[in-house]
Simulated scan of single mutants.
Amino acid sequence: MASCADAQPQPAWALALAALGLLVSARAAARLALWLYAAFLRPARPLRRRYGAWAVVTGATDGIGRALAFRLAAAGLGVVLVGRNPDKLAAVSAELEAKRPGTEVRTFVVDFADDDLATRVGALGEFLRGLDVGVLVNNVGASYPYARYFHEVDEALAQRLIRLNVEAVTRVTHAVLPGMLERGRGAIMNMGSGASAIMPSDPLYTVYVATKAYVDQFSRCLYVEYKGKGIDVQCQVPIQVATKLASIRKPTLLAPSPEAYARAAVRRIGYEPRCTPYWAHAVVGLLISLVPEPVADRMFLNRSLGIRARGRAKEAKKKAQ
């Protein structure tokens, strides 16, 4: 029987490889633990105490924006609902006041697709003057009616996407930020998209994805600029939520209801500069990152071509009626 003294020492390269493996495993375990904590255990920020008494939500009459308004009210904030349809604004305001008695609610009408956007957002800034706006949610946005090649995107659609997804978030932030600076506190949450931040590409949605990439970088730069001034800026990048914008009617595990998404989203406000609040979206993002980009590109192209074919067939049917 061999003694311990007869054991051969391990070569240096094997020890280095083992140490590297241990380091990689420890890093992966730490990242998993941090993600689990942020996704499920970390407490939400005390929004009213930390940032201010009011939240402003754009695109607040439907989908994610509406759900976020209710969650922010549940967190104790007064809510300014911003949207283009005065009747819908009034209906959401009445429902919010009925479900959350004592919540202060105000409404402001802006059609972010209009040519006079600068004037209307200036009026919004005046409307908000004197309010202790602690949270701004830039949620308004638009996508394609269905997937299409870039050469099939007409001028009206391209202009609408740029105005709603780029100009609106820029102008509204510029109008609200000075008040936050005066008070030395605030949180800005901009709605990005996993299509630009998680997926390697989303072909046949080119202009939409490019506008959301703007939101991502706009948010990141503001985060760095204003972090030292008491203002937290964040871009949230969901994948799919069951809304009209995504053309998904029935919620699923991977496409949650707006209410389910909003619960996760409000808990993350004020933390990371970019996050994917809904846990299943984060898992999907991890799986996508493991797929070689050429393979992922082909997968998403095939998916988009299927959406395009169905959209064109539906459009042709409508024209034939």
Rank of each mutant, 00 (worst) to 15 (best):
M299T: 10
A33L: 11
I269F: 08
A16W: 13
N165K: 07
E182H: 09
T119A: 15
K244E: 07
I239R: 13
T119W: 02
A28C: 10
V92I: 13
M1P: 05
L96F: 04
I231N: 08
A26D: 02
Y149W: 09
E225Y: 07
C4H: 13
Y149N: 14
L254R: 05
A94M: 04
G125I: 06
E155W: 12
G65W: 04
H281F: 00
A60G: 11
L254S: 07
Y278D: 03
A118S: 07
Q240K: 05
V79P: 08
P46T: 03
Y51T: 07
R303E: 10
R249V: 01
A75T: 00
I64T: 13
A118K: 10
L124M: 08
G52D: 03
I288R: 01
D6M: 13
R100W: 09
A90F: 02
A175E: 06
M299C: 10
A73N: 11
A28L: 12
P86S: 03
L32R: 08
P258N: 01
L72A: 02
F70A: 14
A30S: 01
V166A: 11
L20I: 04
V133L: 07
I188M: 01
V284C: 06
I231M: 08
A18P: 01
V291P: 12
M180R: 14
C275E: 01
I269K: 05
C4S: 12
G52V: 09
S257P: 02
D202M: 12
Y149S: 14
P292G: 03
D132S: 00
G130T: 12
P86E: 04
G228V: 05
E225L: 11
L124G: 11
E152M: 10
D297I: 04
L47Y: 13
I64S: 03
D87C: 09
A147V: 11
G102Q: 07
E97R: 15
G228E: 03
R49K: 15
V140W: 05
E97A: 15
R45N: 03
N302R: 15
L124A: 11
H281G: 00
T173G: 00
A113H: 07
V283K: 00
A19D: 04
A14V: 14
M1C: 02
G179H: 05
L222Q: 08
L124K: 07
G78C: 10
A73C: 08
G134R: 00
D114K: 15
V291R: 12
D62Q: 06
R50S: 06
F300V: 12
F70P: 01
A91F: 06
A19W: 14
G65F: 09
V56R: 09
R163G: 04
L117V: 08
E152D: 15
R45E: 10
L131M: 15
R148V: 06
L72V: 05
Y226I: 02
A91E: 14
A242D: 01
S143A: 12
P292Y: 12
V166R: 00
Y214Q: 03
F218I: 00
G63W: 06
D297H: 15
V284M: 06
A26Q: 12
R66F: 07
G184R: 14
P43W: 10
F127L: 07
R312F: 05
A2N: 09
E97P: 05
P178S: 11
V237Q: 12
F150S: 13
